[in-house]
Write a protein that binds this DNA or RNA. Sequence first.
DNA 1: TCTGATGCGTC
DNA 2: GTCGGAC
DNA 3: GTCCGACGACGCATCAGA
Length: 986
Amino acid sequence: MQFSELALYLEKLEKTSSRLEITRILSELFEATTSAEVDKIVYLSLGILAPNYEGVLLNLAEKMMIRTLALAFNKSADEVKSLYKKSGDLGDTAEELSQSTVHPSQFTVTDVYEKLLDIAKDNGEGSQERKIEMTSSLLKNLDSLSVRFVARIPVGKLRLGFSEKTIIEALGISDTEYNIYPDIGHIAYLTKTNNLKNIKPKIGVPVVPMLAARLNSTTEMVAKMGQVSVEPKFDGLRIFIHFKRKDNIVKIFTRNMNSIPLETFPELLGVGKFIKAEEVILDSEAIGIDPTSPRLRGAGVFLDFQKTIQRRRKHNIKKTAGEIPLQFQIFDVLLLNGKSLINEPYINRRMELEKIIIGGSLLRVDENTVTKDPEIIKEMHKKYLKMGLEGVVVKKANGKYVSGRTGWNWVKMKEEEGQSGRLSDTLDCIVMGYFTGKGKRAQFGLGKILVGIKDGDVIRTLTKVGTGLTEAMLVEIKNRLNKLQSKEKPKEYEAQKDLIPDVWAVPSLVIEVTADSISKSTKHSLGLSLRFPRFLRIREDKGAGDATTLGELIWWPYFSAKYGLAFVGLLLPASLIQFFVNREVSRYTAITGKGIWSGFLSLGKYFTYPLFLLCFVNFLWLGGYASAGGTALFELTRFPLSFSDRGGTLFWSYILIIGFSGIFLFSKIIYKSLENFMKVVSAITVLGLIFSAFQPEVRVFAGEFFKYFFNPLSIRWPTTWEASDSSHLVTAIAFAGMGGFLNLLYSYWMKDKGVGMAKYTSKVKGLLIKEEEEVEEEKDLVFADTEENKIMWKGWIKFLNFDSLLAVTINAITAGLTTLLAFAILFPKGIFPTGWKITVVQAQFFESSLGYWGRILFLLVASAFMIDTWVGLTDGVARQFADFTYKVRKLGKSFRFWYYFWLGFLILTSLITITLAQPGVLITIIGVISIFAFVLYIPALWYLNYIKLPQEYPVFIKPKKWESVTLLLTWIFYLAIAAGYLWTVF
DNA sequence: TCTGATGCGTC
DNA sequence: GTCGGAC
DNA sequence: GTCCGACGACGCATCAGA
């Protein structure tokens, strides 16, 4: 057949949209074809030269075709490009160009096919030029209509409205043969020559894979499929393994029926050792495993898709295979010892699988749950998401292996019911410009849009979006953007050169976008991008100034990361400034030997009573620390299995609280045991954080990070501000250096440490420790103005400064490191921890550097850290309260009585309050109140230490002038924060 | 020998 | 991979 | 429900050209 004749058919096909009509025309075409050419016609009309698994590639596509057309029709590449922009189709462009030239010779279909095959075969040095020349001479010798279609073939876009399925229908056959012998050209040939007979899957020939439809309602699943098998969905590569023991044949195919050379996955060379059968075809998902993780019962820790895909390579295989070992999650068997299992019910196929697979670190049969209960599907879905997997695949229990996505046999579910993407929040992005569409989209003049996010004053590209747009929306957006059109790139935009849209738009239009996850990007100027982005809607209510900023993309586990770099600059001053408060608190105790509340009380009840009330309310919520520890333990143990996050957290929190309350009973000097325990826990935490921070993936971010860390002046505030944001920010500032009422605890720890005059007062001991002498209220210990005392005083002050500075510095370091890690690890992955998840997510810091055991270690340390904080606070607060009540009302009870009274009260309160809210919320309450506490009591500290005590004690204890200046500045700092907070909230 | 452009294939 | 349009 | 064709990010391979 002359190619020109085929072209007439193709033109007719292109014009018709009805599939019935297309099918009719195709059968007419096949009727008119000889059996010798039918395969070539089929291939060419699909834009291919051979079935995928033969790996015939032209290596000539869009850009090269533009050059080809320029060469063939004597135009400049720019001229071709601009025509292409307009038509959106290189075939149409080629046709248009070819009309002005003569086409001397004619080619048959076979001629064209063979010439293209020659082009495909060429490679090596100079091949690009030769390919272009060959293609160009082919086009020059065809009539214009043929040129249209031949030019489209290399680009792989025939746009005729049909593909394999329709061809099969046109051939008048069922798809069963094609599905197990997916060479459409050969099938057409066999049909034409009446040789198509029943065949079965064959080793070395791929099977068209069965795909999962999507549904995110579990009840619908059960309604459609009845009894189902629920299985994890891994984020790896779909791999078919063909194995024949005789001659040790191993062949591998992908989802698209491409064959992969066995050298790519050397671990499969010896796969026969793990298969108890002579001959099998297995369906599986290959997924990379973290080689540093221990393999518990053979199972490893999964790497993400980006890592796994690196295994698909030709070079450096050995090294990469060591870094990214693959685990094959097997879930189906299609051929077993010569018998096709395709028509067996799924459950039976699985039973066979379990018999023949020797599970280990190479092959593993997916775990599954057979059920009819939508709730159980939901539970499994939740569980697998928690394990870091993609979701679930739900399979009809008695379904056959049906190639393609037809019917409700396999169903996948990624996101929660009712959600549109797996990202926890949708993003509001600024539309930076648009690209003219290709093919069908060309008529709308817009095919996709370039979208970005504000990063300070600059707007950086995040992703292109082209899916999710209806045709009406294409038009709508185009019209809007034309009004916002800008000849040049707006100067606040930053975009790399292969991301220049056809039309720039001034920042104004905001759209809502969703996606599955956030990935690191080298292509987009933001350094991040979206996996599977899709358009949701135009945000009519938002202008460019309201769009999501870079800072809003993360939520620092310690309340700060939500503002990303914008917050970082505040961190260092916020942690260090508390030094001045700590120092005054401890100074008072060192001089008088008394707790700080005694000092406040000496100032009068009208000041102290309200302050105490505030303090009292504040510490009702300290159970938040215990429940944060509980979250970590629940995550670690996953026990009790059936409990929700909340239930499990409460369960472990109660165990922790009750367990650790023992310290109060048995400890000789409570402060000592707390501090020793804390030392160990802190050391592990800090070392782990430092170690994690030195991992290469974190180091990359360090430069950028520290620039902001040490230069608070470069803080860029997020443009949107919600009341809850203010609370988080204020809390972060308060906690950066352990602030608010917590600073007052210093006084009591100093007392127990016996610093200064406190060494002459008694210490609080455990309830069950026999006490020779009752702990009493402190005596008034005033020392004389002697040279000896002066020297002693200098020593105390040195110690106080050192101790306070040490505490503040450690806080600053941990806070800084955690922010860095959040920025480097959580941010790129798009993990925004909230509520119960805060502690758990931080485990990823350790996991990223120390692997599986790092995670375990972190969760253990985190729970220890949190419960220890709770114990420490409960003890300290009980003393504050006891100090206060003992002094205020002489009820005839001892200090020790009041201490244990408040201890009991606080433990009880913790047990109750942790049921009311998540740990994050509880801790936020403490943080916000703390800021106001500073404003109230810093002046009181000043009065006590700078005015009152110098009147009663020797003059040498009077602080220096500049010290009162630092205290004043500190007070102003907190005053400003508190005022700012009130201002944004109200 | 390195880098950018282009193509192809995975999800 | 996601999504919308045509049938 | 089915099929088709718009569109996404990103990793590796190859070739051209500095």
